Amino acid sequence: IHDQARRPQKSHLLVFGAQRELATYAYDLQVLLDAVEKAGGLAFIAHPVDPAAPSVNQGDISWVDWNVRGFTGLELWNGFSEFKPRIKSMLHAIYYAYFPQRIARGPHPEALRRWDELLASGKKVVAVGGSDAHSHHMRLGPLRRTVFPYEFHFRAINTHVFVPRPLGTDAASDTSMILDALRQGHCFIGYDLPFPTRGFTLTAHGMQQTAQMGDEVDCKGGVTFKIRLPRRTECVLLKDGKPVRTWRNRDLCTYITTEPGVYRMEAYIHYLGRRRGWIYSNPVYVN
């Protein structure tokens, strides 16, 4: 949802679970966010950093008002937004249209910085990833190409959710369960094209409880982080946006702390000759 009368276009919002049309509130971002909350929906800032690509007449459609309140989270990694900075010329656009698997490298550094800044301010902000799939049909002289076909995009940057039971009970119950997992931050971003990210877990074990991503845990007596990766690779644990431990060529990682803070992890994988972002967890909040 965005204010279609605004020029230049900015500040898109992803809304889930509201069960009603909310576009009429888009003239004011805070009014829109308040309406989403009232409707019981989730609101995610879409492609918060989305730079221009003048060579293909695409403008900057980043988020502009960071003083608003009430959003659930933000779209940390957006596939189409990452594509735009790669297009330095029409030749680049043609190249990546035919080799889209070479585009993704990770979330925009400014998006990561903004997320860590929000978390450091005491807010709980859930990160999700999205393909922003449009399946554009490109024509340039004799060239015909579907840029980012859906079947490609949906195998690339995805949001994986942790739910308490398998899907299949009924559509309404399953939908509610998935939305609740997103609301709580029980999810992570996975770039599944190089290697499936299914099987990744990050848990924090305290004296009284075990926390998963999105949860809080008491640091009294110490907290043990356990990270399980689907394959051996590079893994970085961050506290308040700063790396505190890096592991290389590991699929199981353990870290013990007594310090409060916001802890999250990033994993990297080598694919097509380049180190690329692979997994970005949501935080565990250690109090």
Rank of each mutant, 00 (worst) to 15 (best):
R113E: 15
A18M: 10
V284Q: 05
H2M: 12
K123V: 01
R155P: 09
H205R: 14
P283Q: 09
R114H: 10
H108I: 12
K123E: 15
P100E: 13
T224E: 12
Q4Y: 15
P230F: 01
R145I: 12
E266R: 05
F200W: 10
L32G: 03
L32P: 11
D3E: 05
H2A: 10
L143V: 05
G129D: 11
M213I: 09
Q58D: 14
R139G: 05
P109G: 03
P243M: 09
T175A: 13
A104D: 15
I157E: 11
R6Y: 04
R105H: 11
A97H: 02
L119Q: 14
T203F: 07
A181M: 06
H2P: 06
S176N: 14
H270M: 09
L29E: 10
I279G: 00
S55P: 10
C187V: 06
A127M: 02
F80M: 12
M207W: 05
R165I: 02
W77E: 08
F162W: 14
P85G: 04
V284E: 04
L42T: 10
P243T: 02
R250G: 05
A18D: 12
A18G: 09
A53W: 12
H108V: 06
T197D: 06
V31I: 02
L13F: 10
M90C: 06
I103A: 02
K10M: 02
W63F: 10
G206V: 14
G206E: 13
S281I: 12
L193K: 07
A171R: 12
S281K: 01
M213S: 10
R183W: 08
W247D: 12
D60A: 05
H92T: 12
T233E: 14
H2K: 04
R20D: 05
Y255N: 04
R275C: 09
A120L: 07
D3F: 02
P283Y: 00
A120F: 03
K38C: 02
A18H: 05
A97V: 03
